[in-house]
Design a protein around this nucleic acid. Structure first.
Lengths: 134, 134
DNA sequence: CTTGGACCCTATAGCAACTATAGGGTCAAC
DNA sequence: GTTGACCCTATAGTTGCTATAGGGTCCAAG
């Protein structure tokens, strides 16, 4: 039989665009299992670890918090349960993101308004500063 | 002549919707000047302090970082200078906010797509988890 | 006069999610 | 045999606060 691929932490880092320290941080935070160690105490990873790290990174890229990722990971491992919980998490997060967008839209509009006040004079008459003071 | 109004830190907090600890934090961070103290070592504020705190809070509400607020404050005090710098800061921040919105829009679209995959089965066949793993 | 509650003070630790740094060991190539 | 790219642990720093501990002050009601 084939030897299973043995990956170093640097391999995982390169394969996922994650910093080495961040991977170790995920391990401490309980998002990645502690891998076996070589005789010299180096971490030895298998393809499952890579897969799991990819999952974590993808969730993070989608804006889930580490807590939510932990939740998703634990749900995904209970293969006999309803997937409604996962769907709930995803939908709740989607709603949160949409709320955040609405927030930033208001903010951008205000910034546009303020930026347009500048007429290129001296600070003493700066309309922007004035607007920020109101 | 009238006595100038003497405000406690609690007064400032109430007047601006800021927590007392946050005001002290701003002082340490150099955003507010150290006010004079009473005989019992209580901070004594004047209306200018209130004005300045409002400025800081408004900038923060608009999403400027404390560093940017410091910058805006220092620019606003040099009343003889061109206000182009302030305008530059405002426009740069506006651009950053708009970029963030675009980012979140992409994210929300992805989350909508993923959420729609759920068909209410068991975790083992969960399309969401699958999508997160890709 | 004392007691209760609302205020004020400082200093330190905690939060998220990393990143940076110090101080060390390992290993392969030249 | 030494350079440079790796690996390890542990701790401190980042941002913008918030929370907590442990104390002092002040005023009004009982």
């Amino acid at each position: 039989m084939d030897e299973p691929a043995r990956l170093t932490i640097g391999d995982l880092a390169r394969a996922t665009g994650t910093k080495v320290v961040t991977i170790r941080y995920y391990e401490k935070a309980g998002l990645l299992p502690r891998p076996p160690r070589s005789a010299r105490n180096y971490r030895i990873y298998a393809p499952e670890h890579l897969h799991r790290l990819r999952f974590v990174r993808r969730c993070r890229a989608l804006g889930f918090t580490l807590d939510q990722v932990r939740e998703l990971l634990s749900l995904s491992s209970r293969t006999d349960r309803e997937c409604a919980e996962v769907d709930g998490l995803a939908k709740a997060h989607q709603a949160a993101v949409e709320a955040k967008i609405a927030d930033l839209e208001r903010l951008a509009a205000e910034l546009r308004r303020i930026s347009n006040l500048c007429q290129g004079g001296r600070m003493a008459d700066c309309r922007i500063i004035e607007a920020l003071s109101s």
